[in-house]
Design a protein around this nucleic acid. Structure first.
Length: 276
DNA sequence: GTTAATACCTGTTCGC
DNA sequence: TGCGAACAGGTATTAA
């Protein structure tokens, strides 16, 4: 699923295809994704030039030479495909961007959990989806052990659920929450407010590390993530616990089977021996 | 105010 | 083999 590292990889893949190029046409193939596309979506974008593409948490923010910023979220099945002019459309290609110079970018999203919106650049921080986001985990000034500890202090939910709360830390999804807790040796069932001091330091460091590792594995082989058909989307990593129910713990000295439990309606994977 | 449950979606996997 | 149920999950909304 596209979490922060995947979105960052998509951003890097889109840059050469879009930055500095004009949007000769933007064609929505349906009126809505998860939410209705904003009024005049195609018209407001057509003729504009892409100045930059930024990322905040799992959101892509495409800066234009206009007062609007195009905000895009991949949901859980969203991906972009790059190709030459008029390359074949596939099922679930919901938005087509025709770029100056002849390239095209197709946004594909079978489950339509993603969305796009246009918002004034001057007031970007006030966007309802962005306003409530917690600190950016890879920003060392914004996110650290003490910051995390302070945000968990009054939380009575399990730490796993708290990590998924985008207001606590932005951009962590189910997969990396599981992986970070494993690396930090913290049980997903531990109550959030008990993660303080050294534990919070360890967890904050683990969150940064799993995200950085994933970006590095995506970024270092970005070409491999643009498949022959041009698809830019999520990619497979090797995980220590996620999806490994019943397999032996990656810690050779442990070897206990990885357990899977439901938490807040999501699957949690963990080692009951290494994580306390 | 905080937390938990449910809705939204459809392709894939699982079990009978 | 075939079919339906369960599952995947980020965020909004509703309920508790």
């Amino acid at each position: 699923m596209p979490e922060l590292p995947e979105v960052e990889t998509v951003r890097r893949g889109l840059m050469p295809a879009m930055q500095g190029k004009r949007l000769d046409a933007v064609i929505p193939r349906r009126p809505d994704l998860r939410f209705p596309l904003p009024d005049g979506f195609g018209q407001r974008l057509t003729g504009r030039t892409v100045v930059d593409i930024r990322r905040r948490a799992k959101f892509l923010m495409i800066d234009l030479d206009s007062p609007d910023v195009l905000i895009a979220h991949l949901g859980m099945s969203g991906s972009f495909r790059l190709g030459a002019a008029a390359f074949p459309e596939e099922k679930h290609d919901h938005v087509i961007f025709k770029m100056s110079g002849g390239g095209e970018v197709h946004y594909n999203d079978p489950r339509r959990f993603g969305f796009m919106d246009l918002w004034p650049a001057a007031d970007l921080a006030a966007h309802p989806m962005l306003a409530r986001l917690g600190p950016e985990p890879l920003d060392d000034d914004a996110f650290s052990g003490p910051v995390l500890a302070a945000r968990l202090k009054d939380k009575k939910t399990p730490i796993k659920a708290a990590l998924l709360d985008q207001g606590v830390v932005a951009g962590v999804g189910n997969i990396y929450a599981c992986e970070a807790l494993y690396r930090a040796g913290i049980s997903p069932k531990r109550l959030a407010h008990t993660v303080q001091g050294a534990r919070a330091d360890k967890l904050a460091a683990a969150v940064k590390a799993v995200l950085k590792d994933a970006i590095a594995s995506g970024g270092s082989s970005l070409r491999d993530h643009i498949r022959p058909d041009g698809e830019l989307g999520y990619f497979q990593h090797s995980f220590d616990v996620y999806g490994r129910t019943g397999e032996a713990c990656a810690n050779a000295a442990c070897g206990a089977p990885i357990l899977q439990i439901p938490q807040a309606g999501r699957s949690t994977f963990y080692c009951s021996r290494c994580q306390r």
